[in-house]
Structures are given as C-alpha cells and as structure tokens.
Design a binder for these strands. Sequence first.
DNA 1: CGATTAACTCAAATCATTTGAATATTCAAT
DNA 2: ATTGAATATTCAAATGATTTGAGTTAATCG
Lengths: 386, 386
Amino acid sequence: MVVIPFQQGTNAERSRHRNRQAVLGQVRAAGTMGRAEIARALSLTTQTVSNIIAELVADGMLVEKGRLSGGRGLPAIQYGLNPKGGYALGIEVRPDAVFAALLDMQGKPVSMERVALQGTRPDSVLAEVSGLYARALRQVSVAKDRMLGAGIVMPGPFGVTGISGMGSDLVGWQEVDAEHLFAEAVGLPVVLSNDANAGAMAERVNGVAQGIHSFAYLYFGAGLGLGMVHEGQLIGGAFGNAGEIGHVPVPGGKLEDALSRLSVQRHMAAAGKEVTGIDMLDQLFLQKDRDLMAWLESASTALGHALAIVENMFDPQTVILGGAMPDAVLDHLVTHAPLPQVSVSNRPEVLHPRLMRGASGRMTATLGAAALVLNRALTAPLSYAN
Amino acid sequence: MVVIPFQQGTNAERSRHRNRQAVLGQVRAAGTMGRAEIARALSLTTQTVSNIIAELVADGMLVEKGRLSGGRGLPAIQYGLNPKGGYALGIEVRPDAVFAALLDMQGKPVSMERVALQGTRPDSVLAEVSGLYARALRQVSVAKDRMLGAGIVMPGPFGVTGISGMGSDLVGWQEVDAEHLFAEAVGLPVVLSNDANAGAMAERVNGVAQGIHSFAYLYFGAGLGLGMVHEGQLIGGAFGNAGEIGHVPVPGGKLEDALSRLSVQRHMAAAGKEVTGIDMLDQLFLQKDRDLMAWLESASTALGHALAIVENMFDPQTVILGGAMPDAVLDHLVTHAPLPQVSVSNRPEVLHPRLMRGASGRMTATLGAAALVLNRALTAPLSYAN
DNA sequence: CGATTAACTCAAATCATTTGAATATTCAAT
DNA sequence: ATTGAATATTCAAATGATTTGAGTTAATCG
C-alpha cells in the first residue's frame, strides 16, 4: 500500500493550486460568477482572484459570459466553466465487461463505450482500458493534456479475505496494486474506488446532490453499498472499504439479505421466476407482480432500518437511493420506506427530503468514476484556522 | 446556525499558520524530531522548517532537546514540545454539575475541578464556567495568552426535536447559540461537541489512539455514543449530530436497549438491585453478580452487532470502547464481544486489535473536551493535489 | 586522515497574495 | 439633470512566506 502522508505542509505553489481549485469549484457550483463575488466566497482578495482567473482563462478552463448589471456599481464580468477546458475519464470494471465514459468539466458525458471481457486477469483488462481510453480521445478529439485524471471503479472490498463467497471479487486482482497499474495504463493520475462511492460523486457532480456537501448514497449493486460524503469529500475509511453497509446486521438478518439485487433474484426464484435483468424487473413492477410487491414490502422495511443506521450514525443532509434498479422500483422504495421516528434527521423543519432517488440512472458507477476525478479537481477541502 | 463556508482559499498567512500547526503536530506525534526530519515528513524545505522552529522556540512552544547522533553527518538538534507552551480548557456540562480541566500542550491535565449545579439555565452555567476558568488559570498560574482555546461538551443531540424523552437534553439550551455564549464567557475560541466525540479525541491525544488516524470510539454515556475520527479529524455530520449509534436498530431492538448505562440500571432494577453509580457496578462485577453477568452476556452480543455496524460502515483502524463504566467491565466486554466474521475489518494480518479499551478513565469527556482543542491546534488536514 | 554524508545557517531570489491608487459604471438622493 | 455613494475592475508596488544556492559544522566510513 502506498503510504499516505498524514499531514502535509504547504507553500506558494500548493497555495496557488488550491486557490485555483477553489475558484473553479465555486464557479462550477454557481454557474457563473464575477471576480469580486468569488473573492468574497473564498476569503481572497479580488486581485488574487483576478490573477487566477486570468490564468484560468488563458488555460481555457474559464470563459467570459458577459456583464451582469444588477445592483449598483460597475457590472461584474461573469465567468463560467468552459466545458471543453478539462475532461475526466471514468472506467468501470465488472466481471464480464468494462465500461468507459468521458465527461467534460461540466460533468456532461461526451462519450461512452462498453467492451465485453473474456477474463478478468489484469493484463487483458488493462489492455482493454488503454484501448477504450485511446478511442474515446480520438472519437471526441480531446487532447491528452486536457485530461484531469481517471477514476476507476472495481468491485470491492479491497484487500480483505474475511468476507468470501461474495462472488464479487475480481479474479487475479487480489495481490496487485491496481491504482498503480491503471495509472500506468492510461498515463493519468488515478482515483480508485468502489461503485457506491462513485455513485455518490455522480450525484454530487451532476445529479440530485448538487450543492449538498454532506450526504449518504445507498447503492444497489450485487449487494448494497454506501457512499458517504462529508464536507464535499468521500469518506473512504482507513483501508478504503468504508460503506459496506450490506453486511450490517438488522432485525431479520443482514441488510443485503432483504435489500439488494441478489435478494430480489433469490426471492423471485423461490417463486419460480428467474429475473435476468433490470428491464425484467421493470416489467414485473409495471404488472404489479405479486411476488415482487411482496419483496418490495420487506425491502421497504429493511430500507427503513438502513435509514435509521445511516441517519443516526452520519447525520447527513439527505440520503440518496440509486444503482442497478429500475427508477420505478427506486421511486416505490423512496415513497414506501418508513422514515424512522428515532433519528437525528427527524427534524421539525427540513431543507432537503430525508430520502431521495438518485438521478444518474444505470450508468451511475461509470459516470461516478469520472465524477470522482472532477470532484477532486474542483474541491479544496476546508482547513481549520484558530 | 452559523454558515460554514464550504471552501476557502488560502494565502501566505494562512499557509504559515497551517505549517506551524503541521510542525507542532509532527513533533508531538514523534516526541522529538530534528529540522530536516520534519521537513521530509511535511514536504517542506529545511529552511522553512528552520524559520518556523525559530518562531516556535521564541514563542515557547518548542524546546531544544539536545543533539542526537545516530547515522552519519552532523547530528540533528532535536526539538520537543514545551508542555507549558500552550494550554487547552475542557468543560463538561452535565445536568447536575460542571467539570473543568486544564491540559497542557502535551495533553497532561494540570488542573481539575467539579462544581455542582443548581439549575442548567444558561446564565448560571456560564457564570460557573467563567469562575472555573479563572480559578484554573490562577491555580496553575497560566497566562491567558497561553490558552489555545476551550472545548465544551454538552449532552446532545443538538437542535433536534424528533427524539424526545431521552432526558439528556439540557433545560434552557434549546434555543441559544451555545458556542457563541461560551466563547463570550471565557474569551477564547470554542469547540462544542458531544461526549463521544470528545472521548475519541481524548484517546487520540493522550490515550490508546495515539498515532491512529482513523478510528471509532464507542462511548457509554447515559445512552451509547460513537465518535468517528477520519484522517485525524472528527466526523460531525451535517448538523453536528453524527454518531448517535444508540438509536440504531439491531436484532433484538435498539442498540442502547442492551448496551448503555441505562440498560444495566434497568436490568438490575428488574432484579431488585438499584445501581447508583459506577463504583457499585465495579463491586457487583468483582462479586461476579449473577444478574450483572447475565446483562454482560446480552451486552456482549449487542457489542458484536455494534462492531459489525461500525467496522463495515466506517472501516476504521480500530474500535475503542470507553466511557462511564468500570474498567473491569469494559475489559470484560472487550474480551467477550464476538468479533463479527462478516466484516471488512476481519483481515488476515492486523496492525491493531479490532477492539480495545480506552485509557482515559472516567474523566474521558472532560479531558476530551480539551483534547478537541489540542487536536485542532496540532493537526493540519490533508489536501489533495493533482 | 581524507572523503562522504547529513544538518544547519545566511543571504538572495522567487512565488503568490495583499495593499493602495485610479478608473468605470450604476443606483439613489437631491 | 446632477451629484455622491457603492461596486467592479485594473495596474503597480509592497509584503509575507517559501525556496534556492553557497558555505559551515560535525559525525561516520574506508
């Protein structure tokens, strides 16, 4: 494992980098902003912001958006992100296929591709990934130096042997430094994470969590995952495996026994119906299939438990539900899950609904992989002064 | 509510502050260090570290500790924290009393006092607090400008009405800005938190979590609380109420039904034994009281559930158990709790035991209140460069 | 004993932000 | 319609903090 320095000092160069990040992030969050406005938001002087903006405009990251006359005084020149100023690559590795997406700085996907995998051995996966990356660049004609980085999503958990038989661990990836390998394959800085974390970032960058800095994201993968975002940053845990909420015991068993894709499939199989894909679930839901509705009943209860756990432990602004389920099913769960009474989130006045459905659809994890990069590039973490 | 800026830019002054923090933190963690060593650890130049150290020595925060000859070359001058260089005030407000502790920069308590409360109205509490603070300063003859800040611990949760009947909410504090009031009363920067968070910091600053950057702390208060430390910083949640793990549903009911001080008291009362204090529990445990042992049996099971939740959701380096329980009882729980099989923490090789007993004893929360301040003063959060 | 290694210091250079002065534009009051 | 206050921006000089480079000191290795 790479030794992560626990503390780092800073200098002029790092300060500049941080301030650039902050300016970009601020502009992205607001759409368009003027120099003075940005300066106030970041506790910088207008001159500093002015210098940075000049640089960012020269680099093609920002573009002028005309003057906005509103209040008194000289109308501020508005600046907005230049979507073509930077791109992020998102890669999702599944046991049977690799997905790639290229997102512009705005968070909009500009290319997508899927390649089937023969095996999951590192060599072949890496070769496919380089190919996907090269094709994406060519297809959209993006210069390599416009790339901000690559986000990789793989089935976790990473580096643990205690949980086996999950069937999700990729063969051949146990003993390798995946992050390093991918970084070499694409020649970019790499962020490696799991599907739930990526999904959370997808919602933050482009979905319903825009402008929300602390939230939790419940993700239907094969099992059930959780992404936690605190002050704009993911909480990954000491070993990168935080959020494995599926394994958590609740009344009635493990959470993912009642609330996961495997759980529906098992339930429906017991009723003699083999569920092969998401579309089929969608069909069954439309038909109000009795067995599916029965499963939803118990799943809603389980979701209530999950909420009680997540809300009380993490106290987020909201909880978002997403992943490999039809939107209609997610919506049903969102409206039918019992919101726990005994919860710190049970407030008299609320700014956000306690539970929402995610907006990223089925490609959540792939888009989220790229969103991991965007979030890192556009967010300067808070530091505490005295 | 105070609007917390989500991002902030930085400048020369803030950089310096941050670097000072980082140097102090590094020295504290290592005991003694030389300039070049610190520079390497923080990715700064030796010259920068030299300048900062000169300043810190002049300010009385660091002291020279002689030369250490080990390898080749000029032996480095070692520097260590000057315990008297700074002090942190810790205040714990309980429904019936206020506790105050003064910690030096090393984390060692230099004064402690308890004052009984008539009522918990803000005026009277604040008056007692100012008094305690003034007496502590006089008693240890600490100059006011040596104070780094004050940490306040109060029963939470803060600003929630959904959970009532907990009996822990302080009367008269619902509608006031406690942080501001305390800051005015003592004339210091204030950190406000709950007992579990404070306890976690106590362990980090002076207990078994020294050198551990990501861990979780289970705290026996009236109920059961959880403090989560991630990369050296507390995770407070969006509204400051993260860690209310007691309310979480597990097989058999809410977690704190089986695992809390109230739970033992109820259990023992049902057996006709009124438990009035910790000492009495200690006695009963020594005598291997049958009813207490029965409670411990079920409490251990519950603790196993708690571990499964905390480990899988947060993936910490370790979980620490502490709070208002006799050490012997905590030890019993630590040894008897079933370590969950299905957990991301169930690793083949471990650096830290998965479950440990805290070392701060009964004054955990008060000491922790001050530790909150020390941690903030000595830890520069990581930022991510590209 | 000389070569090498490493820590430290001084002075000058560099980088980035801040300060101060000047200008442009709009709103609001007279 | 005119004037004054408020706000946004820019330019040039000043400031604050880190970095660079040369030089000194001290210990170990061969």
